[in-house]
Amino acid sequence: MAAPRSVVVETGSWGLDQDAESPSGKKLKPEKFPLSRWEFAAALGVFLVFSTGLLCIYLTMPAAEYEMLKLPRTLADLRLLKDHLVTYAQVNPAKFILGYCSTYIFMQTFMIPGTIFMSLLAGALFGVIKGLLLVVFNATAGASSCYFLSKLIGRPIVTWLWPEKLKFFQAEIAKRREKLLNYMLFLRVTPTLPNLFINLASPIVDIPFQIFFLATVIGLVPASYITVRAGLALGELKSVKDLYDFKTLAILFLIGSILLIPTILKRKRVYE
């Protein structure tokens, strides 16, 4: 999780009522669900394993903590959750970190929105250094888990949701095979492509896991630092959008451009 990225989901006509009609008067049929029964069963099995683990961790907490435990969707929710958990995190640091990490990785694996709030919470409860280490670890673990899940069942989903974006990504990767790490670092540092799409599409376009892993660990640091640091002033933050103003985005693109220099120089030498 990590920096927020906007994701445009192109689902076509999936979900339309079977009786819906086109402007020409012909009935429209909903698009076929992209997963086979085996793929859906595999995804459901992984989901149930994660969910069971989270439930076991949840049941170890005192009953008094249950009422306020919910995924924050707004900054107001996050402030209430932080105030509720601050004492528990200090008294039971190991249990809290286990629950926090499991929730973050679960959300990242199954593409559940809201990890930016988890990153802000880490900064608010643990400070910049510890919070940053915690966020980068969880974001990398969750992205890696999503990578392997996509390797198992991701191709039909990505092809179904983002066919044009996948073709573009595949073409860009093919042009940069020799300096692939630099390009992946650029994508991780900048909001050029959504992190969700990168996690799902990387195994499909044959990006080796070691490159994916290194780019994720290193590339998520700048944006994670910005988010975690903002968590220190959680009470003053008015909107999540304030985290990534024009100045911040310009800095991220500058860092990303520097990372691309080896790739640009390599291509220049080839054409000379």
Rank of each mutant, 00 (worst) to 15 (best):
A2S: 10
P4M: 04
V7C: 09
V8I: 05
V9E: 11
S13Y: 15
S13I: 15
L16G: 05
D17S: 12
K26Q: 14
E31T: 11
K32R: 05
F33K: 11
S36H: 07
R37H: 04
E39P: 00
F40L: 15
F40N: 06
A42Q: 11
L44F: 14
T52S: 13
T52C: 09
L55K: 08
L55R: 10
C56G: 06
I57F: 06
Y58L: 04
L59A: 08
E65L: 13
L71E: 05
R73G: 13
L78P: 02
L78F: 10
L80S: 15
T87I: 12
N92S: 14
P93M: 14
I97F: 06
I97S: 06
I97Q: 14
G99P: 04
G99Y: 00
G99M: 01
S102T: 15
T103D: 08
F106P: 01
M111D: 00
I116Q: 07
I116H: 05
I116D: 05
S119Y: 08
G123K: 15
F126K: 03
V128P: 01
I129Q: 13
K130I: 09
K130N: 08
G131R: 12
G131K: 09
G131P: 03
L134E: 10
V135D: 06
F137H: 04
G142R: 03
A143D: 03
S150C: 02
I153G: 04
G154R: 01
I157G: 01
E164W: 04
E164N: 11
A171D: 04
K175Y: 12
K175T: 10
R177Q: 14
Y183F: 02
F186H: 13
R188L: 04
T190W: 07
P191T: 03
N195F: 01
F197W: 09
I204K: 00
F213G: 09
T216L: 03
V217Y: 01
I218N: 00
I218L: 12
G219S: 05
L220F: 09
P222R: 07
A223F: 06
I226M: 12
V228L: 09
A233E: 13
K238H: 11
K238P: 03
L243E: 02
D245P: 08
A250T: 06
I251Q: 14
F253D: 15
G256C: 04
I261Y: 13
P262L: 05
P262D: 03
K268A: 14
V270S: 08
V270I: 08
